[in-house]
Design a protein around this nucleic acid. Structure first.
Length: 273
DNA sequence: ATGGCTTACAAAGTAAGA
């Protein structure tokens, strides 16, 4: 069974319904995981998304900030809503995709906190909450490791660019939130906790510069190209070779009224997993 | 010059993004 899964930090879903439509017409994902929908559950543009083709929608919204939603053409059921750092913010939603075989296939949609400006837990509580969030992920998935055979995929805006090639300048970003050594360390621990495989870097060599976010502030984002790879696709080892193709849709950064993040697409074939 | 912009909000400036 072939499924196309996309992840996109949409930065306000209500504002960008036309962009979601454009993306889906061009790339036709079966499942779309959105982050930063910036609305409550009842404000979510449900009928517009149904018109686009997503009959099955799960929303974990919150007023004004954060919020995630998973939209699907295939039947899905909510399997988990987790709060990894105890702030009760809407940053996680896991669904089970039905009809994919005997072993459950669970898809986690995650929005890790940005972490504020200063990479200092004393001066900036948000940075601490970000580290707590990554630690909470580590704890949760470490407990699950080896205990369940379920096939899992984790996608979303993880707000950390772990590799030197995931930022425009490793040296200049060492003290900038998203690429500090302590964040990368916490990020790597969360990844190792469940032996998650970085499916994007399995397909695009780690030597290659790769970004999924560019600041709104650049006059010409493509010319200055000061990007970071903040959006990720992870799979459990049993799913490792079923990721057939990865696409980074950087054209979307040039669409009208764009998000500052671009979509990442993963094509998987579950019949082999 | 990584903040130059963008978003939400009991609506003008504030908080947040990263």
């Amino acid at each position: 069974m072939k499924i196309r899964i996309a992840t996109w930090n949409i930065n306000s879903v209500r504002l960008r319904v036309p962009l979601v439509k454009k993306f889906c017409q061009k790339f036709n994902p079966d499942i779309l995981c959105l982050q930063e929908i910036k609305c409550t559950d009842d404000q979510f543009p449900l009928s517009a998304m149904r018109k686009i083709g997503f009959e099955h929608v799960q929303v974990r919204g919150q007023k004004a900030y954060h919020g995630v939603a998973t939209l699907s053409r295939l039947p899905i059921s909510r399997s988990d809503v987790l709060d990894f750092n105890g702030t009760d913010e809407a940053r996680h939603l896991a669904v089970q995709v039905e009809g994919t075989g005997d072993t459950p296939f669970v898809l986690h949609n995650v929005y890790v906190p940005a972490g504020g400006d200063e990479p200092d837990v004393e001066k900036n509580p948000k940075f601490g909450q970000k580290l707590d969030y990554l630690q909470g992920m580590t704890k949760h998935f470490k407990n699950k490791r080896n205990k369940s055979k379920s096939r899992m995929m984790l996608v979303g805006d993880l707000n950390v660019a772990p590799l030197e090639t995931d930022v425009w300048s490793h040296k200049q970003l060492l003290k900038v939130v998203s690429h500090t050594p302590v964040e990368v360390d916490h990020f790597t621990k969360a990844q190792t906790a469940h032996n998650w495989i970085d499916a994007v870097r399995e397909h695009i060599p780690p030597e290659e510069k790769l970004y999924t976010w560019w600041s709104y502030r650049a006059r010409d984002w493509r010319a200055s190209n000061r990007g970071r790879r903040l959006d990720h696709v992870w799979v459990t080892p049993t799913l490792g070779d079923v990721v057939k193709k990865i696409q980074i849709i950087d054209d979307a950064r040039d669409w009208e009224k764009p998000s500052d993040h671009i979509p990442v697409i993963a094509d998987i074939d579950l019949s082999e997993g």
